[in-house]
Design a protein around this nucleic acid. Structure first.
Lengths: 146, 146
DNA sequence: GAATATTAGTTGTTTTTGTAACTAACAAGG
DNA sequence: CCTTGTTAGTTACAAAAACAACTAATATTC
């Protein structure tokens, strides 16, 4: 098991990004999964609704860059648990306007607090400017600024 | 859909990391998936063997922070395609020493070239020092330096 | 040196995801 | 209007991942 040459997997950006993403999701995931029984796409939907108020499945999908079937299933499950309400849109009766129920709001508030604390904790690993730079670079890589 | 308050999902590190990871994996994934029919864990195994020579499944799993069942199945498929050979270990007859076959070496070399080029291309989005800093921060988040 | 615990790796079963095909509503052009 | 095309969302089926239980070999301990 001797090293061959220059290129190192440990410096390959997609690999590093995956490892960092997985690792950094772990602790937070344990909370929304174990404590609230939510899947990742589910809390993403919750966060979008919690932050932006009412949205349609399509809008969430676009913003979260998530496929519509994933959103569809997440929405069903969240509706079953009464975390969100679905109302057929007036303008376009194909679409549904989604919104958190009071119970959903509660869960969102709690998760949000945990997320904020967790984010701050991760941030403590970096110096003042580094965190901002990191986020900027990640947004660029994710294509969020385009 | 009006914004509520300060916390922004688009700045939440685990979220950003996931988006960036997914996005940056996409193009490269298309290559190893469509062109070589490999799964992500499979090329990871290939890369580890290509870079470090001989390894056991366990060693790969530890280094790649990947569960042993995933490794096991990846190894089976790679062995079926004759990309790697499995030799029962002398010291410990539970373990197998894995190594790329010549044909596996070829695939590895090609994929490695593509990976390097792709990595360089991603890097072009950043200034000289930024790329190094980014990798350093990601390694820290991934717990690779511990 | 048997009895017990641990480890390397596999296999089976259940969830979750990805992909394609579908329904129902809307839009545009003639 | 009425055909043709597009869009929002769902459903069905196939692929992949997660988790648990297993086999076989090795360590440990009394």
């Amino acid at each position: 098991m001797a090293k061959n040459d220059a290129f190192d997997l440990q410096n390959f950006l997609p690999y590093l990004l995956n490892q960092a993403a997985e690792q950094s999701s772990l602790e937070f995931q344990r909370i929304y999964k174990d404590r609230y029984g939510l899947l990742r796409t589910e809390w993403r939907v919750m966060f979008h609704l919690g932050m932006y108020g009412e949205m349609t499945a399509k809008q969430i999908g676009e913003r979260a860059m998530t496929h519509k079937t994933k959103i569809s299933r997440a929405v069903s499950r969240l509706a079953q648990r009464r975390y969100l309400s679905r109302t057929r849109s007036e303008n376009d009766r194909r679409a549904e306007v989604l919104a958190l129920t009071p119970s959903g709001q509660n869960v969102y508030q709690e998760l949000r607090g945990i997320a904020e604390a967790y984010d701050a904790r991760l941030d403590r690993r970096f110096s003042r400017g580094e965190g901002a730079l990191l986020r900027m670079m990640l947004r660029r890589l994710a294509g969020l600024d385009d």
